[in-house]
Structure formats: structure tokens, C-alpha cells
Design a protein around this nucleic acid. Structure first.
Length: 519
RNA sequence: GGGGCGGUAGCUCAGCCGGUCAGAGCAGUGGACUCAUAAUCCAUCGGUCACGGGUUCAAGUCCCGUCCGCCCUACCA
């Protein structure tokens, strides 16, 4: 059961120049489902998402399009990113942009604080610069040249020699925190989840940390370094701070104290920024480290990691236009073990939609509502004399409620949904076995029929409550058809089986209509 | 190069410290039923657990090697 404690969950902020694809949507949905579940379980919940808008690439594309970088970002936020949240029905509590005043001002405060405390020093960055890419390359990005560049290191992309450049930079003494980070991973084994992610982070830190260059002076689209305005803050350093500037760091200490620390959800590609750099930054500032960092897996399409560069990126609307946002949310959280890579295919999506949502849950809701309408004129009957079968259903309801709540606590939404589905299956089996349509033929069975219908009705209501975080639209429709009081999202999900009955059911359109198979 | 993970029914995946571990869901097949979105329920077909060795009374389950896929990390021409 919930204890009303604070639950603050974040997603990475979107890099505005990206094009939204189901990978972005997946992280959002996962965070949203966890947030809705906690919120509905009585926790003081806050879900944050937003956009990352600084950096050279954005400056460059804005310039190429003849607008200022801020105008460029404004446009993308309004036309791409906020609409994405609508598309997949995200109920975030806040949306931060790294160009917000609340962010920029407090990033400077944070940085000044680290500077004053001696965590930052002036150094010189030396690296291989590729003119073609207009950026520094890591040694691993270089390959041996051929032909006229035989014997030289060349950029893997442009196949041209790189230049060794020097740039004055400010550095964060991240190396000083290696031991404290290792101690953190040791003391809190679940700080980085899943375990495979934790192992990689630990071995990375054990191999030695170097200091981090945190400023750039070759372009100016970013937050000014407060003591040297010829430099802007390195985009990652800037971006990570959104998690605290959004909840009042530097200006609203009460709010900050109430929300922090956060549970971060990230794709495993950016795990290191969140599990190493970010905690080191917080330690340096004397702030509490996050509650946890969960690195989820990739979505695989045709066995390959989905990515925009491979043109396998799928726009979320492609799915929601046909199946709806509820199905999108359900599918990705149900079909993929959260934390592992997961295969996406239209066939699997279609099959699960049909078998689980339409035939399993949706049809169950339809048949129960239809029978109460048909046999009792819509009046919700009372459970007159519950027997063993009814006790068994009640037990499944309780178990599904407890097991799903516990799974959410473990950040295992796939297990939570699986636990709820045991109730779907049990109810379909119960209705078939009890044969209310047979009972209805003889008035002598009136009480038994009441009991069966009441039991099925109660079970379906419990499902509406339990599934509300996952399929909010369908749950609300069902709740309304059940004639249940209030809004389903206000009913405690950690005590779902204790919901208050309605008196009269009303017509229910199919929650998940069959989709004619064409593709 | 080093390290890690994975390769189990047509598909997606469970199988913790070795001994009902050969499983689930979907798909397929047969049957029951009609309240329901041609839905539901029951039954059933289906796998040399990547490959080759080894340890053991007993190995998907431990050890060694090979092949394949992926990830992290380091890179000498």
C-alpha cells in the first residue's frame, strides 16, 4: 500500500532537432504509466519532461533556416514535441525548456557555486577536430587513412585528416568523485537499474574517470558561463540540470525539498550521463543524488536497433492513428520486459491488440455490461449469496491489485500489467463457467444470476481502476458505462478491489474495436 | 584485444542457487457454448533447450572450446 510519499519521475529532455519516433514515445509512456500509477496510489507525484534546446547543431540548423535559434526551438517545441505528448496521452505535470529563464538563471547559480567551491578549473582542451563534422572526434571515431592519407588518422565519416586543436575550457573535476560514486553503487545496488546497466557503469567508473570539459567558446548558443561570458555551458551539463531547475533549485527551496530526489528514466544510450556525470555534479554541489537511474532497452525493428539514421524510425502517429493511444501505451509496456531490448513488429502489435485488448479485456467489458442491461435492465444487482467461485474471483482481484502495485514499485510495468491480466482471464473464465445466459432462462435462478452478474461487474470495475494508468481513455469509458461514482483516475489503484459500486450501467461502445486487417 | 549479455516450440519470451525444467502467451488443430467486438471456455499438435567436449548418480541449468547476434571498453600497424 502507498504511504503518500513523494514520487518525482523524469524523462530525458528531447533534443529539439530530433524527429519524434517511437523510441522517444516509449520512454515517455513508461514514465507516464509509472507516474499515473503512483499518483493513483496516493503518492505525491510529479512527472517532468521537456526539451533540450542549446548547442551548436541547433544554432546551425536555425541559421540555415534563416531564423534565430530560439525561434527555431519555439517552432519545434510547438509543432513536434508538445504534440507528441498529446499523441500518446501523457499527463506530465511540468514541461521544462532549457531556454526557460528558470532554467538558465539557476544553471548559472549552480555553476557559480561549483566554481566558488573549487570544483572547476581552467584548462586546455586538446582534441582531434574534423572540419567536415565541425566537431571534436574521439580517437575511436578515427580510422587509418588510405590512399593519399596513408599513415594518417582520418575521420571515419569524411575520410579526411583531422586537425589537432587546442581550446581554452573550463573543466569540472569529475575525477575527484570516482571513489564516492563507486561507494554509492556499492551501498545502493538499485541506484542504477537494471543490473546489467549497473555493471557497465561500475566497470566504466572503475576504469578511471577523467575531468569533464564543461564550456565551449566556439559558438554562443547556450547558457553563458557566469564568470566568463565568452564561454557557454556544455550542452550536457546544461541539460542534466533541468531535473533540478524545474523543481525550484536556486529559487524555491520548499518545492525543491519536497520533490527531490528524482527517479530518472533514460534510454541506455545516455545512461552514463545520468549514472556517472550527473551524480558527480550533484555531489560536488552538496546535493542529494537521484533516487535512481533506470536505463531501459532499445526498441528493435527487424532485429536491428531502431534509429532515425537507419530510417527505421517509426512515427508514433503511425501507430496511434490506427490503434489509438491506449493501445500504443499498452503494447509497449506489456510486450517488452522493461529494461531489456524489445522487438517491435506490426504483426505483434496487431496480434496483441486483437487477442488481449479487443478479445480479452474489451470483449469482457462488453459482455458483462450487455448482460446486466439485458437481464436486469441495467440495474446493478447485489451479490446475494457468493460461493466458492465468487470467493475465488475476489481473491484474484486482491492479488492482481497487490501484485501490480508491487511490480510498479520495482519499476516493472510489464509485470504489473501481466498481474492485472490474470484478472481479465479469470473473469472471462468465470462468466463462461457460470453461464448467466442459462440462469436467465429460469426465474428460479434469479438470486444466483444476481450474484454472478454482481461478481463479474465488480471484477470489471476493478480492472478499470487497475488499467487506468495504462489505458486511461478506455478505463474512463468503462468507468462511465459502469455508472461508477467519480473519476476512475481518482480511485486508489493500490486498493483497486475496494472501489465503490455504481447503481446503473449504460451502453458501452467497444473499448477496442476490431481492426480490419489490411496491412 | 579485453569484458559483458544473448542464442529454449512457427512467433515473442519464462525457466533463481543442477534433480516433474522441457514451460507460457500468440498462431495452428479439435470440441463446447452463445452473454459478447465471428468474441469466450476446454482440450490438443508442436522443441536433439545454437554446436562440440567435460564435470556429475543427475545439466537449457556448472566448466572449456566453437559459431552467430548485440552491448561496453581499449586500441598496435
Amino acid at each position: 500500500m502507498a504511504d503518500g510519499s513523494s514520487f518525482y519521475i523524469t524523462t530525458p529532455i528531447f533534443y529539439v532537432n530530433d524527429v519524434p519516433h517511437i523510441g522517444h514515445a516509449y520512454t515517455e509512456v513508461a514514465a507516464d504509466v509509472l507516474a499515473r500509477w503512483h499518483r493513483q496510489g496516493g503518492d505525491e507525484t510529479w512527472m517532468l519532461t521537456g526539451t533540450d534546446e542549446h548547442g551548436q547543431k541547433i544554432l546551425r540548423t536555425a541559421t540555415a533556416n534563416g531564423v534565430t535559434p530560439k525561434e527555431w526551438a519555439d517552432k519545434l517545441v510547438e509543432t513536434s514535441w508538445k504534440p507528441l505528448l498529446e499523441t500518446i496521452d501523457i499527463a506530465n505535470d511540468d514541461f521544462i525548456r532549457t531556454t526557460d529563464e528558470r532554467h538558465e538563471a539557476n544553471v548559472q547559480k549552480f555553476l557559480q557555486h561549483l566554481y566558488d567551491e573549487g570544483h572547476i578549473y581552467t584548462g586546455e582542451y586538446e582534441g582531434f577536430y574534423c572540419v567536415g563534422c565541425e566537431e571534436y572526434k574521439q580517437p575511436s571515431d578515427l580510422v587509418a587513412g588510405t590512399g593519399e592519407y596513408e599513415g594518417q588518422q582520418v575521420c571515419a565519416i569524411h575520410s579526411k585528416p583531422v586537425e589537432l586543436l587546442h581550446e581554452k575550457n573550463y573543466f569540472f573535476r569529475m575525477s575527484a568523485f570516482a571513489d564516492r560514486l563507486l561507494a554509492l553503487y556499492e551501498e545502493r545496488p538499485d541506484f542504477v537499474q537494471p543490473e546489467s546497466a549497473r555493471n557497465e557503469v561500475v566497470s566504466f567508473v572503475k576504469s578511471g574517470l577523467s575531468d569533464l570539459s564543461i564550456s565551449r567558446s566556439t559558438f554562443d548558443w547556450g547558457i553563458k558561463v557566469p564568470w566568463d561570458e565568452s564561454h557557454v555551458v556544455y550542452v550536457w551539463f546544461d541539460a542534466l540540470l533541468n531535473y533540478i531547475t524545474a523543481i525550484g533549485y536556486g529559487e524555491d527551496t520548499d518545492e525543491f525539498a519536497k520533490r527531490w530526489p528524482a527517479q530518472h528514466l533514460v534510454g541506455k544510450d545516455i545512461l552514463r550521463f545520468h549514472a556517472v556525470i550527473w551524480p558527480a555534479m550533484l555531489l560536488a554541489a552538496g546535493l542529494e543524488v537521484p533516487r535512481g537511474v533506470f536505463g531501459h532497452g532499445w526498441l528493435l525493428v527487424g532485429g536491428e536497433k531502431m534509429s532515425k539514421s537507419k530510417l527505421t524510425g517509426i512515427a508514433p502517429e503511425q501507430i496511434t492513428d490506427t490503434f489509438g493511444s491506449d493501445a500504443f501505451r499498452y503494447y509497449f509496456l506489456r510486450a517488452i520486459s522493461f529494461g531489456q531490448d524489445g522487438s517491435f513488429s506490426w504483426e505483434d502489435l496487431s496480434a496483441r491488440y486483437q487477442a488481449e485488448l479487443a478479445n480479452g479485456f474489451g470483449n469482457l467489458a462488453s459482455r458483462v455490461v450487455a448482460m446486466i442491461t439485458r437481464y436486469r435492465e441495467g440495474v446493478v444487482p447485489a451479490s446475494v449469496a457468493p460461493g466458492e467461485a465468487e470467493a475465488a474471483i475476489a481473491e484474484v482481484e486482491r492479488r492482481a491489485t497487490d501484485a501490480s502495485w508491487a511490480a510498479i514499485g520495482r519499476i516493472a510495468p510489464h509485470e504489473a500489467i501481466a498481474a492485472v491480466w490474470e484478472l481479465v482471464d479469470a473473469l472471462n473464465g468465470y462468466v463462461t463457467e457460470q453461464e448467466p445466459w442459462v440462469l436467465a432462462k429460469d426465474p428460479a435462478n434469479a438470486e444466483r444470476l444476481d450474484t454472478v452478474l454482481a461478481t463479474a461487474y465488480h471484477g470489471v470495475g476493478t480492472l478499470a481502476v487497475l488499467l487506468s494508468p495504462v489505458v486511461p481513455k478506455a478505463a474512463a469509458k468503462l468507468w462511465s458505462a459502469l455508472g461508477a461514482p467519480g473519476k476512475v483516475q481518482d480511485v486508489r489503484v493500490d486498493r483497486a478491489h475496494e472501489w465503490s459500486l455504481g447503481a446503473q450501467v449504460s451502453a458501452l461502445e467497444p473499448l477496442f474495436p476490431r481492426i480490419e486487417t489490411t496491412a
